[in-house]
Design a protein around this nucleic acid. Sequence first.
RNA 1: GGAGAGAUGGCCGAGUGGUCGAAGGCGCACGCCUGGAAAGUGUGUGUACGCCACAAGCGUACCGAGGGUUCGAAUCCCUCUCUCUCCGCCA
Length: 423
Amino acid sequence: MLQINTIRQAPDEVINRLKIKNFDASKLVNEIIMLDESRREIQTKLDDTLAEANKIAKSVGQLYQSGKADEAGKMKEMSASLKEVSKDLSTELEKIVTLMNDALVLLPNLPHESVPAGKAETDNEIVASEGEFPVLPADAVPHWDLIKKYNIIDFELGNKVTGAGFPFYRGKGARLQRALINFFLDQAIAAGYEEYQPPLLVNEASAYGTGQLPDKDGQMYFAPVDKLYLIPTAEVPITNIYRDEILKESEMPVRNVAYSNCFRREAGSWGAHVRGLNRLHQFDKIEIVQIRTPEESYTALEEMREYVASLLRKLNLPFRILRLCGGDLSFTSALTYDFEVFSSAQERWLEVSSVSNFESYQANRMKLRYKNKEGKTNLAHTLNGSALALPRIVAALLENNQTPEGIKIPEILIPYTGFDIIS
RNA sequence: GGAGAGAUGGCCGAGUGGUCGAAGGCGCACGCCUGGAAAGUGUGUGUACGCCACAAGCGUACCGAGGGUUCGAAUCCCUCUCUCUCCGCCA
């Protein structure tokens, strides 16, 4: 969430910048400022009352020790009324703090100044475009036909055992998945990321920390008996490692990578464009996470963008990079680059990665701070990106590399797959 | 799942009603010492909020969480959560 200081110091700027996200914040901001004012007023009163009560308690102790029980008795009475006052004040304070927090979590992150205005996908700005579209054979088909033809991914089996959106990968399909996972992890490690294997279920505090709660409740699978959420991305456990932590500047920058299964309910989002591997309830993703100082977080974002681009180049996939417009930008993000690969048989662009800088928005919510060289404690900046999400990469690889002989495996993956063609 | 023990600062660990934000040790930071380092030695070393200039300073809260008793709680009482040990089960 946004820092109260930011809102207090420049409320108009907050309102103006959120207009880029098509979010009318004026009412919320005013409410927050009013709540903040009364919060501070009450806090001051309460502190003064408690200070006085503390003084009395101390002198009562001294009076008893010096045998002046009468005087001590009088002091006790004074203390009783103070106690009532402080009780009322702290109840009131608690109420206001709750109201303020409830309001604060409803405010999205401020977009970075480079974010273009816009309402929808079509307003995203294409900032790069690379690679050649492949020339496909005349009888080229989409990946959902290819996986049947070569018997490498089985949706019907998934339907039987679990339900829609939970396919089985088999034979060379399973091996291709495993190859991609290892390839992506090896690449990330070579680029300086530390590998983690995170838990796939997280508690409520973690889901809240990265911002899945309260705004994306309903998108996550939930195990009510133990009150645990199935992670929609490794971002959640990996970033929450640092929840309630104060990092030394020497421990920064943090560069972590994790492979995980991701679980998404995708409630209400099934339609014509989600056939085959385009959208699943369970999928595999390698996620990179960085924790940075505010000064260098945008340098880090560009570094991550370049890293993701390098993966797609190595896989020989045509891709483009979009700078998301305000309307398409997520609630918690300040700036996001989406990566899309061209899936030739479907003839559409598929989003395979999303690289974002959350600035201090997540950090504030999860109290992730760092101590700078001067010894001052500040909120850190968090960033993350997919590197990469598997299903759509697989879809594009299958479609783009289909030949009459079979599906050719990109050169760089062959050491990982152990075969060069799926036929 | 059964039985027991416990939760204190970055870590270890003392503290069973007042002078405790909390002894001591380790770690860390800075200084001295040294050709340099180690050792030794001195000083410092939590977080949040409020007043205020995001200074100094002062105040308040925090010893797993929440509530209670009391003029006063790390210390007493209640509830919850978590951790550990043993047994059972088990990849």
